[in-house]
Design a protein around this nucleic acid. Structure first.
Length: 668
RNA sequence: GGCUACGUAGCUCAGUCGGUUAGAGCACAGCAUUCAUAAUGCUGGGGUCGGUGGUUCAAGUCCACCCGUAGCUACCA
């Protein structure tokens, strides 16, 4: 009997669009789920929007609609975005649902009955104008340690200090600008410390990755405190039973949303028993895929709540790292904060699924996206290696043999190598190490291409006596391709479907790799993938940059934030003389400049060819960023940046110092 | 600031218990090839393993400190 598995991805917060970061998690989960389904296991994948909290309430208010209307609109967008990336949630619900309310109340009542809930009066910052308590992110003021202004209520960006919002000097409410006052309020606490021993053994039992267990040990060893699970009105959420103005904190009901989504899935006509998956001795598996930033909620608070309420605990928490682009955080101003919907306007979703798959390894390391690497990997692996096998064999089979595959294999040993990879690829999928799985699969693709090159069907076809050899070789090639398509199905479901049509077969199953297709009629080959042009990616980045300008998002990244004098001092500007300038073969926009900085010469590539002739630049002075990291470019290394104004094309204007400046002078 | 991770070829990443000359793919160069969507095959160049110091017969691997990146730090979600 197969395994029974319930899988979740972290719930996206219902105040913004799905972006590349969400997709890393959902694609990773989807690959794992599709693999389980392909194996014939019963695997249910549920998710939901995380809707509660002051965040959605205020955002809805900004748009002048009710929170309910606002979150439902977001949910529809999220569902569309995920569908566009072929992510097959069996149910995508909302935490603002009857199921979540019922289960939250049930769990709370059980915890309360067991004496795990207590009430304590605490003092929090209160906005007297808006008449509401303020979460840390809605308060700014001066850091109590270094005194820098404009810092949030939890920690200081500049000196790194952490503190309570009540410690801020000159605090102000971001909602009204008013000075917050301290106000006492009764909060409800969950007695987390009761479960310290349980959590110590659970976190080291293999339920979380070792590096995550290390991080959690820090919490466990320093002593768990009671967890504040209530928030005061006004709040968007569910009332705590027996109160009229205390709401469940969003992180209390968010994981309950996993249960609720599963419950709703059953209600929608699926014949499953809720208790089979959630009762304390359930033999079904429960897997949560999450980002490394929220491990404490999933691997401390959540298992303790489940334990306290008499439910089973998760089988495994799969934590992953974050996306960086060229080594740094996604950035709206650089156009690397890319939304799912924008991506889909320009590129095939399976390109991204494949690229992520080549890099996912089941650890919490961050994943760096490099767009030229992305283009190269997809083009050379998917189009050049894998799909090309089918493409180069199909013509012979359809033109010479009426679409009929040979009745026998030509190279049994080679075929067996493809069969033998099955368990190892399976284990890698199971462990979430899809990067190794892909490496094994592309190594097989290399063998297939070598095989075809060695047997040269395009030469054999000219010899009438060896006509049937061509059928043997190309049939072998197509069977090898079929194995690859099955192995890649979890990552590339649409490609696999197209391959099924080409091969004229039913839906792939994992065990199909055991036996080849022989004496079988296939259909005419249609290209499964087309090559990607870097220009499409450039357009996508450009479009994402525009999104930012028109979107008017609240600057939660601090993109255009005021910088300190220390930040400015990091930029070292110098006067430089352009001693040589020349065009670069093959480059449309670049000029290669040789700059004299007084004590050294540097080569800099500048994108100013559209506005300047090389000759007119020689001898003039320019302003250069002298400590910019050297950049490897296609035509060589660029060792700095020349400053210029203007929007681009013909309108580029180089900056120059007034008369008297000499090369090498510092600019302050 | 404290903590948890990470830093290896131009790029993206492997590298097991410390053990021979540090590997792969992409990119690049040369040759071959023309079935395939300019797709393939063969060969090759390319490394101060972030830095400094230490432990050891032996360090990419262990230790200390430093630099850089990311996350957490319980009311941001």
């Amino acid at each position: 009997m197969g395994r029974r598995i319930l899988v979740t991805s972290a719930l996206p917060y219902a105040n913004g669009a799905i972006h590349l970061g969400h997709l890393l998690e959902h694609i990773q989960t989807d690959i794992w789920v599709r693999y389980q389904k392909l194996r014939g296991n019963q695997c249910i994948y549920v998710c939901a929007d995380d809707t509660h909290g002051a965040g959605t309430m205020l955002k809805a208010e900004e748009e002048g609609v009710s929170p309910e209307v606002f979150i439902e609109r977001i949910r529809k967008e999220h569902i569309e975005d995920f569908k566009g990336f072929l992510i097959e949630h069996d149910n995508f619900h909302t935490t603002h649902s009857e199921e979540t309310r019922e289960l939250s109340e049930l769990i709370y009542n059980k915890l309360n009955d067991r004496g795990l809930i207590f009430i304590k009066k605490i003092e929090r910052l209160y906005d007297p104008e808006r008449q509401m308590f303020l979460a840390d992110r809605f308060v700014k003021g001066q850091c109590p340690r270094c005194g820098s202004d404009d810092q949030y209520g939890d920690n200081c960006d500049l000196c790194g200090a952490t503190y309570d919002a009540t410690d801020l000097k000159n605090p102000r409410s971001l909602l009204s600008g008013a000075t917050p006052e301290l106000k006492a309020s009764e909060h409800y606490f969950f007695d987390l410390a009761q479960y310290t021993d349980m959590l110590k053994s659970w976190t080291t039992s293999g339920a979380v990755q070792p590096e995550v267990a290390n991080k959690l040990a820090e919490w466990l060893d320093s002593g768990l405190r009671a967890w504040d699970i209530s928030r005061d009105a006004p709040y968007f959420g569910f009332l705590i039973p027996g109160t009229t103005d205390k709401y469940f904190y969003v992180w209390m009901d968010a994981p309950i949303g996993y249960m609720a989504s599963f419950k709703h899935y059953i209600k929608s006509g699926n014949d499953l028993a809720f208790d089979d998956f959630w009762q304390v001795d359930s033999d079904a598996e429960l897997h949560h895929f999450i980002g490394k930033d929220i491990v404490n909620f999933h691997a401390l608070f959540w298992p303790a709540v489940l334990e306290g309420a008499g439910f089973r605990k998760p089988t495994r928490i799969h934590a992953h790292g974050f996306i960086t682009v060229d080594g740094t955080k996604m950035s709206k101003s650089r156009g690397t904060f890319i939304n799912a919907a924008t991506y889909l306007e320009y590129l095939n979703p399976e390109y991204l699924r494949y690229y992520y798959a080549t890099k996912l390894n089941g650890t919490i390391d961050d994943m760096d996206i490099n767009f030229s690497d992305f283009v190269q990997r997809v083009n050379s692996d998917l189009v050049g290696k894998i799909v090309n096998i089918a493409s180069r064999c199909a013509g012979f089979i359809s033109k010479q043999f009426g679409g009929e595959l040979a009745p026998a294999l030509h190279d049994e040993a080679l075929w067996q190598k493809f069969v033998d990879a099955k368990d190892s690829v399976a284990n890698l999928y199971e462990a979430g190490d899809t990067s190794k799985a892909v490496r094994e699969i592309t190594a097989l693709a290399d063998l297939a291409n070598q095989y075809i090159a060695q047997h040269e069907p395009w030469k054999t076809i000219k010899d009438p006596d060896k006509h049937s050899d061509v059928q043997l070789v190309c049939s072998q090639g197509i069977n090898l391709f079929r194995s690859l398509a099955i192995y890649l199905q979890p990552i590339l479901p649409a490609m696999a479907e197209a391959a099924e049509r080409f091969l004229n077969v039913e839906r792939f199953r994992w065990d199909d790799v055991d036996a080849p297709l022989l004496a079988h009629r296939i259909n005419k080959y249609q290209p499964l993938f087309t090559r990607m042009d870097k220009k499409q990616v450039d357009k996508l980045i450009e479009a994402s940059r525009e999104d930012d300008v028109s979107g008017g998002e609240t600057a939660d990244e601090g993109e255009d934030a005021i910088i300190s004098i220390e930040d400015f001092a990091k930029i070292h500007l110098k006067v430089a003389e352009i001693v040589a300038a020349e065009t670069v073969d093959g480059a449309d926009k670049l000029l290669r400049l040789t700059l004299d900085l007084g004590d050294e010469q540097r080569q800099v590539f500048a994108g100013i060819k559209s506005a300047y002739e090389a000759d007119e630049l020689v001898g003039r002075l320019a302003v250069i960023v002298a400590n910019l990291a050297p950049r490897e470019m296609r035509f060589g290394t660029s060792e700095g940046m020349v400053l210029a104004a203007g929007p681009g094309d013909a309108d580029i204007f180089l900056l120059s110092p007034d008369a008297g400046a000499v090369p090498g002078m510092d600019i302050h």
